[in-house]
Structure formats: C-alpha cells, structure tokens
Computed example of a mutant assay.
Amino acid sequence: MTDDGLGWYGVRCVFRWNDREHRPYEERITLWRAASAAQAIELAEREGRDYARDNRFEQLNFAQAYSLSEDRITQGTEVFSLLRDSALKPDAYLDNYFDTGGEHQAR
C-alpha cells in the first residue's frame, strides 16, 4: 500500500466469446490501483462490462483479485497468483486445468 492508501491489484475476469465457432472462454487479468481487493474487483467488473459489450462477449460475472506485494510495477512483477488444492499428479493437474487441448495460445 502506498502513502495515498492505494495498492496494485491484479484481477482475473472470465468472458465467453460468442462470435467464434466453439465460443471459447477468455481469462483476462487486468491491473488496478485501488484501496482494497473489493474495490479493484468493482473497477475490473465495470471495465469488463464495457469490454464485453464492445466485443459482443458474455461477461460471466466471475472475478478474483490478487494484491501485488510491490508498490512499483517492474519487469517480472507477479500480477496474479492462485493456490488450488488438488490430489492430481502434476501432469494430470496441468491436463485438467491448463492444457486441455482447447487453448488458443502460441507455443
């Protein structure tokens, strides 16, 4: 938190694209200066409504906030982290949550 009472927050929101064949989901992380995680989510959701409307996407009303531990954003600053308990082994975990084969990504 800085002297002005504001900190940096990474907020992940989820959208669904309606104009593509398989209607992919998008996880989008944006950065916000806010007094709390709740305020950062409010700001991200407001911006997300515009993003969804402008692109004809569906906003899924799901947001998670992460408080950045650093006040200055620099190269390599962690902007989001999420811990998840799972009994899956590493390869199965990645296949289940992150590498399903349906991702649109550069490799």
Rank of each mutant, 00 (worst) to 15 (best):
N55M: 01
N55H: 03
N55W: 00
N55K: 01
R56Q: 12
R56G: 10
F57T: 02
F57L: 13
F57P: 00
F57E: 02
E58S: 14
E58A: 13
E58I: 05
Q59G: 07
Q59F: 15
Q59L: 13
L60A: 03
L60G: 03
L60Y: 04
L60K: 04
N61V: 00
N61G: 03
N61I: 00
F62C: 10
F62W: 12
F62V: 09
F62H: 14
F62G: 06
F62N: 11
A63N: 07
A63M: 05
Q64R: 15
Q64P: 01
Q64Y: 11
A65E: 01
A65Y: 05
A65Q: 03
A65K: 06
A65L: 08
A65G: 06
Y66A: 08
S67R: 15
S67A: 15
S67V: 13
S67H: 14
S67E: 14
L68C: 12
S69C: 03
S69A: 13
S69W: 09
S69Y: 04
E70T: 15
E70I: 07
D71E: 14
D71K: 05
D71F: 03
R72W: 01
R72N: 10
R72I: 14
I73Y: 06
I73R: 05
I73P: 00
I73M: 09
I73G: 01
T74W: 00
T74R: 09
T74I: 12
T74M: 06
Q75L: 13
Q75K: 12
G76I: 08
G76E: 07
T77A: 07
T77R: 04
T77V: 06
T77I: 03
T77L: 02
E78R: 15
E78N: 08
E78V: 15
E78H: 05
E78D: 06
E78C: 12
V79H: 03
V79Y: 10
V79K: 03
V79A: 02
V79S: 00
V79T: 10
V79R: 05
S81I: 04
S81F: 06
S81Q: 10
S81D: 02
L82F: 08
L82T: 02
L82S: 04
L83Y: 12
L83F: 11
L83M: 11
R84W: 00
R84A: 06
R84I: 10
D85W: 08
S86D: 09
S86Y: 05
S86L: 07
S86H: 05
S86T: 14
S86Q: 05
A87Q: 11
A87E: 10
A87D: 12
A87G: 10
